[in-house]
Design a protein around this nucleic acid. Structure first.
Lengths: 214, 214
DNA sequence: TATTAAAGTGGACTTAAGTCCGCTTGTTGT
DNA sequence: ACAACAAGCGGACTTAAGTCCACTTTAATA
């Protein structure tokens, strides 16, 4: 019997990962997680991970093009969880009639705590792609849905009359999220001694300034 | 005759650079500038620079610990010029009684154009120190006087009653400058297609929101 | 089950950053 | 002028990222 190909999808229909490969991926992730936890992500070499996992470097790099991608994969579950939790909460808040700007406040506050908890891995993730071509820099993937979310809330707030209607929401979302980049965040926490509350309040103060009737 | 040592400064009194060393420093800078201009800073290897300058790698690294430091040295003059021009202008504006917030507006606008003009080198400069210890990351040197300036203007605006007196000016300066980091800036320009005017306006809109009587 | 092509694998190899150290040269004090 | 020593120098060496490719394994099909 010939292999089934959906009639409405004659595209490559890429086969899913072979199961030995999937096993190795999982093994690599576990190993990396352990090593990162033991020595700190910055002190772990790709070769260490390969050796500890008992695989060759070729295998490691076939799955993860670099440490940033590996770190991102390690955070994947937690990012999804956070994302889902936020979307769920926002849906509920909207149903209860909470103002969009208040939702944005809470979103940003939650994000501050998220960035704090995952700061070491986020630093690794964001260390990539600062010199390369533009399209694939770190401003694409990890921040993408956050950006979407902030823009969405700002636009809704604008539509609801909570904000003046001439705001450049895309730019503002960029600026707000830039203030939460892992390396700056770390500097603020460790170098400047800022508390999470201070960062959250400072960021939300910027949003508050955008409101109508100022 | 014994070497003069100021009586009020018995510290090491480090000798100034030897003149052959100074000549090499200049040679390296010229060479690097040429190569950067020819191929783009990202495509120039440290070894290339050493070879083109006709010096060993040891010599190169003795002067500049890495490409970021070298790039920073290349920008040094222009940064000083910009800084002096800004300080001069601000002094004049203050003498004329211009509001501090308007001065801040103009400063940020000028900074947008500065970051645009020097974006390639700034990307190299900022590519360093994102994983290392906190104290010496790029949030220290290149941004330091900019941060000082913004904090100063904000504080003066606050003292003059142009801003409410409960603002976290240090945090706000961090956030505003974060929005001008070279890699984000480049993404906004090339990836998002933002104009300089749009970036400047967006940034200044955030400042405007902080004003009194909103 | 046998065939076979694509996917997966390991580790040698390449590239580039950055360090080290024995030799050279400029500077200072006599 | 010259001795002595610190600063400067070059390039071999080390470290780590990332690529390549000949060989092996899986799984779809006949």
């Amino acid at each position: 019997m010939s292999r089934m190909i959906p009639l409405d999808n004659l595209e490559p229909t890429e086969r899913s990962e072979r199961k030995d490969a999937a096993a190795n991926r999982a093994l690599i992730l576990e190993t990396a997680e352990t090593l990162f936890a033991e020595r700190g992500a910055a002190n772990v070499k790709m070769a260490d991970i390969a050796q500890a996992a008992g695989v060759g470097k070729g295998t490691l790099y076939r799955r993860f093009a670099n440490k940033a991608e590996l770190a991102l994969a390690l955070m994947d579950t937690q990012m999804r969880d956070f994302q889902e939790a936020m979307l769920g909460r926002m849906r509920q808040q909207s149903a209860q009639g909470m103002l969009k700007l208040d939702q944005l406040d809470q979103f940003l506050d939650a994000l501050v705590y998220f960035v704090d908890r995952h700061n070491p891995l986020l630093c690794v993730v964001q260390a990539e792609g600062l010199l390369d071509g533009v399209g694939e820099s770190d401003y694409q993937r990890p921040h993408f849905w956050q950006h979407m979310t902030v823009v969405g809330l700002l636009n809704e707030a604008m539509a609801a009359g909570e904000l003046p209607d001439d705001l450049d929401t895309i730019y503002i979302a960029d600026a707000l999220l830039a203030a939460l980049h892992a390396s700056l965040f770390r500097f603020q926490r460790e170098g400047r001694g800022f508390s999470l509350e201070r960062i959250s309040a400072g960021l939300r103060r910027l949003v508050r300034g955008l409101r109508c009737g100022e």
